[in-house]
Amino acid sequence: MRVGLFVTCLVDMMRPRIGFATLKLLENAGCEVAVPPNQTCCGQPGFNSGDRESGRVMARRFLADFESFDYVVAPSGSCTGMIRSHYGELFPDDTALQHRLNALSQRTFELTDFLVTVLKVERLDSSFQGTITYHDSCSGLRELNVKHQPRQLMEQVTGAQLHEMSKPELCCGFGGTFSIKLGEIATRMADNKCQDALATKADAIVGGDLGCLLNIEGRLRRLGDDTTQVLHVAEVLAGPELGQV
C-alpha cells in the first residue's frame, strides 16, 4: 500500500518531529510511505478568511502531488477536514476536476483514523510514562468523526493513562486566523481549555492538531506553567525513540 504523507505546513515548519513520528507509525504498520517534496499547505488559512482562490490553488497542487497514491495521510484533523469537506466543492464548473478531487479526498485520512479504520492497527510497540488528557480538536471531531480512534490507540501505549477533561470537545479557541484576528477571545477560550486540562492533573495534554496544541501550549506557558507537556498524539503513539530529531 503506497501512502503519501501530507505533513501539513504547521508540522513542517514548527514540529518536524511530529512528521517523523507519523512516518514511523505508518511504516511500522507496513505502509510504503513517500513524502512528495513539493507539498506546502492545504489552503485553509486563506479559504477560511474568505479567499476561495486559496482553496482552489492549493487543491490543484494537492492533486498534482498526491493523486498517484493509494492513500494520503495527514497528522491533522483540520487539514484533512479541509480536503475532505471542501475540496470537492471548489470547482463547480469543472466536473472532471471535481470528480478527481472527490476521489482523492475519499482516500485522504487523518492519522489516527487511518491507523484504526483502514489499517486496523491493534498493537503499538510504544510506551509513555504518565497521565494524559486528550483534546478533541473540532474539525477532526465534527467533520471526520475522530473521537474513539486516538483513545483506542493510546490504550495500546504502555504506561499511558487517560484522564478526561470535563469538556474535551470544547473548542480551544485556535480557529486558524481567528487566533490572531480575535486574539482576546481566542486567549480566553485557550485559558478555559487550560484550566479544564490542568484540573485533570495530567502530565501531558495531547491532541491531533498542531494548531490547537500551539494555542494551548502558548497559553499554558504564558500562565507560567513550564511543566505540563503538550504533545501531538503521533508523538505519544510513536514513543520517545524518534531518531535524530
Binding site: M13, R17, L182, G183, T187, D191
Partner: peptide, 21 residues
C-alpha cells in the same frame, strides 16, 4: 500581537520537516 498579547508562541524546532527528511 493578536496572538502574543495573551499567549506565548512556542518556537519552531529550527529546521523544516522536508529539509530534515
Amino acid at each position: 500581537d493578536g496572538w502574543t498579547d495573551g499567549r506565548d508562541m512556542p518556537a519552531p524546532q529550527g529546521k523544516t520537516f522536508r529539509e530534515l527528511y
